[in-house]
Design a protein around this nucleic acid. Structure first.
Lengths: 127, 127
DNA sequence: TCTATAGTTTACGTTAACGTCAACTTTTTG
DNA sequence: CAAAAAGTTGACGTTAACGTAAACTATAGA
């Protein structure tokens, strides 16, 4: 356990460049330890990276990814105010995700429509 | 019918700047007519703009938005090869949307989890 | 021990998607 | 008809997210 990863291993695993990993570190998303000068990524780094890339696929900025990942980090304080703020953030985030789902659904419908017409024409052509 | 829109009207309607509209034109997404030197946007432009913004919300680049919107434009040729290519494109696009849905679902689950813990702590605090 | 191999830090370059003037022209309206 | 409002074309600036090249350093295997 306590698996660790080199920068090259990790970059290969996720099909990104080492440069990107260093960049994410610069942005405060990852914080690998060092053995001498060499970066050692932990399982936590790996998880945060995974979440980051997921966020990116959904069109989030790195900064937004970091914010969200930090919030969801199991280091929640016990302060009620902070907790309420977290709930509010979650509410907002959920809303934006619901919008995205709507967008996707509408796009899907349009695609089905176009595909239908497309297949219709192909059938005609084949006849 | 045959509604038309000025650049300011359209920008207000969609809450974007006139600059953005001109930029989209530059990128070949919109192609408003001109009355003299002034841009006149048609219903078609409006639709394409709507689709563009939807694409953006899903994290697509403007270039990708244009590609997709152009494909789905009701100006489909009758060439079987072209039609098959369109079908293929649709398949790819659908796949990427499905990935996004997966991403959203996983994110939702994580959020529910965090929210649960959050509310739990709040309850404790209130007790 | 010598040389690949892996890794590091600067630091400048690039692309996307506009923002932000500046300097005019055109149109609308009191 | 004069002044405000709306619109236009450059053209340079900006931010995000890395790419890329240079110039080293550290380490590991033959």
């Amino acid at each position: 356990m306590n698996q660790t990863y080199s920068i090259n291993t990790l970059s290969r695993d996720f099909e990104i460049t080492p440069r990107a990993l260093r960049f994410y570190e610069d942005k405060g998303i990852l914080s690998p330890e060092r053995r001498g000068t060499t970066r050692i990524y932990s399982e936590r780094d790996r998880t945060r990276l995974k979440l980051t890339l997921r966020g990116k696929r959904l069109g989030l900025k790195l900064e937004e990814c970091r914010e969200i990942i930090d919030m969801y980090d199991p280091s929640q304080s016990d302060d009620s105010l902070q907790l309420l703020r977290l709930c509010e953030k979650i509410r907002e985030h959920r809303a934006s995700l619901l919008t995205k789902i709507k967008d996707i659904e509408e796009t899907m419908r349009a695609m089905d429509d176009v595909e239908g017409k497309c297949l219709g024409k192909l059938l005609k052509n084949a006849a």
